[in-house]
């Protein structure tokens, strides 16, 4: 009996040691990623863009490179976010706090965990050697959206549905307006804010008001825009998306989408980590570095004639070369 037990325990210890070394060797290469989101991973906007980027990278690289992905949703207040980050920081290699509002907490927590890579955005302030600040140049795709809107509108009125006048929304709206004006300064651009990021119904109501008052091409940012897109689809007017390809929501409504290619941003961070670099860099998402892409909905390809397509291609080149600069005030 005792002999049998000792054999079993020997086997058990052997297996345990073997598997431990197995984990140990994998850990040298594989990274684990934790994410904190202000909304949900299926918001069809900002958070989903990051979530899908990371999941698609994990699928591509496999478990050997990205061993573990974990996330928390709907975190906005400082106490919740702070405690979530302190729980993640010692156990994960990369902690992504997906919002500009997390800046102070990242600043605080990153000091205590120098071996963990932190990333947050939208921001350009990478305040420590282990912090990345990512910074989508939302105005670049917005400028293209403005050009398209100016070509597509028949009423001469285009509408923007904004969440609040801050951060990314300012960049996006300004880029859109300058894009419209670059084609035809006489087109009326009407901006309405809901005062919220997640009020789907209010975003719909604002879209309906815009349509009632004559707008026939709409755009806007934040997760609430799904409500606006629905209103646009029902009224038969067009929509231009940002953050993520939203054409699946309304295949005959969404003309084109600016997509934030967070997959490449995270790949960059993983590669840098392999070289011993844990952060300390401002990472723009732009057409230039390919972290920003602009995709067209094939269903509505007839709206983009050759002339417009040529103009769009040329504009992208000019944005990359710096010939076109978009002033954000």
């Amino acid at each position: 009996m005792i002999k049998k037990l000792s054999v079993i325990s020997f086997l058990f210890i052997f297996v345990a040691i073997f598997s431990l070394t197995g984990i140990g060797s994998a850990e040298d290469e594989a990274v684990s990623i934790a994410m904190i989101f202000p909304s949900t991973i299926d918001d069809m906007a900002w958070s989903q863009a990051m979530y899908e980027g990371v999941m698609s990278l994990q699928e591509e690289l496999g478990d050997a490179r990205i061993s573990n992905v974990s996330y928390s949703e709907n975190l906005y207040d400082a106490v919740q976010v702070g405690s979530a980050m302190r729980e993640y920081a010692p156990n994960f290699d990369i902690v992504i706090a997906h919002g500009a509002q997390y800046q102070n907490i990242v600043d605080d927590v990153a000091r205590d965990f120098p071996n963990t890579t932190f990333a947050y955005g939208t921001s350009y302030n990478a305040m420590h050697d282990n912090v990345y600040a990512y910074d989508p140049h939302a105005e670049e795709g917005a400028y293209l959206a403005g050009i398209i809107a100016a070509h597509v509108t028949e009423t001469g009125i285009v509408g923007v549905i904004g969440p609040v006048q801050a951060g990314d929304a300012i960049k996006y709206n300004t880029g859109f307006m300058q894009g419209v004006e670059s084609v035809d300064p006489d087109i009326e651009i009407r901006v309405g804010y809901t005062g919220s990021f997640g009020d789907t119904v209010a975003a719909r109501e604002m879209a309906e008001t815009q349509i009632d008052e004559g707008a026939d091409v709409l755009t806007g940012s934040a997760q609430q825009t799904v409500g606006s897109i629905r209103a646009a689809a029902e009224a038969g007017v067009y929509w231009l998306s940002t953050d993520i390809d939203q054409s699946s929501l309304a295949p005959d409504t969404v003309i084109a989408s600016q997509s934030l290619n967070f997959k490449e941003v995270v790949r960059y961070m993983i590669d840098a980590r392999a070289d011993g670099i844990y952060g300390g860099e401002h990472l723009p998402l732009s057409f230039e570095n390919g972290f920003l892409t602009y995709d067209f909905n094939e269903n509505l390809a007839h709206l983009i004639d050759d002339e417009l397509q040529a103009l769009i291609d040329q504009t992208i080149e000019q944005i990359i070369s710096g010939e076109i600069t978009i002033e954000i005030n």
Partner: peptide, 18 residues
């Protein structure tokens, strides 16, 4: 009413304080 007669969709926090 909010989901089937107004928004015609459901989303996280649809009611939003109403």
């Amino acid at each position: 009413y909010l989901s089937v007669a107004q928004a015609n969709m459901f989303a996280s926090d649809l009611v939003a304080g109403r």
